[in-house]
Nucleic acid binder design. Sequence first.
DNA 1: TGAGTTGTTTTGAGTAACTAAAAACAACTG
DNA 2: CAGTTGTTTTTAGTTACTCAAAACAACTCA
Lengths: 146, 146
Amino acid sequence: MSKDERHVVFQDRLRSAGLKVTAPRVAVLGILSDREHLDAETIFSAVFVLLPRISLQTVYGVLAALVSAGLVRKIEPAGSAALYECRVGDNHHHMVCLTCKRVENVDCVIGASPCLTPSNFNGFIISAAEVNFWGLCSECQLVAAL
Amino acid sequence: MSKDERHVVFQDRLRSAGLKVTAPRVAVLGILSDREHLDAETIFSAVFVLLPRISLQTVYGVLAALVSAGLVRKIEPAGSAALYECRVGDNHHHMVCLTCKRVENVDCVIGASPCLTPSNFNGFIISAAEVNFWGLCSECQLVAAL
DNA sequence: TGAGTTGTTTTGAGTAACTAAAAACAACTG
DNA sequence: CAGTTGTTTTTAGTTACTCAAAACAACTCA
């Protein structure tokens, strides 16, 4: 897909979510579809190359708009800055390395939303479940073995 | 159990974890065994009543020591300050109200550590799984219905 | 097409929740 | 009870955002 075709896709996504199409939004969507699990600072650096007049605050604003429109998912692993990914609408979980904080996707082996079934709701209406695994990624295992 | 008996229990716990017994530590353990899911600021206020010379930084230090000794569990719900609880060693999860941020415990209906079984490990060594449910608590449902 | 409206971005400032470092102090050891 | 080692206090500093107001740009409709 050419750069222009990608842009059209992002523009359509923005429009059907009821958002105005702006250069920062298209750029952020582009970066998030290239790489997963990026924090605001990293996204800012990447957008800055394309749009040198952009500010970090704008990136925060764009991300908030995209998240609340459902185009982007925000994950907030304990102890790190929030991360954003544009894989949205499925039920995947995350695996976080305790050492390097790297995040990878996981699909739950049990199938569809197993953990959406707690035993005691206490009157809660559950709207989402979040599953995070913590451990050592293969690289940090090697380092730890030294 | 009397106040003194409780203190002895906490002192023993500290000692068997290899930690020195100090007034701030005993006080923090006491508060955490009375109430669940407290943040550092709340714990500080409660300890301050007993030990007016204590500082917030000490509370952070005490909590860090207790967590790394395994006597206290730290939970970090997205969008709130970290919370601490002394129910430790079991596999319970948490339910967080999207509106008031209240946290309650849940036991997973599937049984023991269901979610410790992701399908694709990618070489990770998993050491913990964390499950959080997000929704509306019964009180905030009433408010929302108005 | 272009004026108006509404929503975005920019700029600048401010905050919450920690984290770090050094000096004063207290708990356990023998 | 003196010494050592680990804690606490005090003071600063940082990270990751959040807020507000003014400048600006996207879409709408004549």
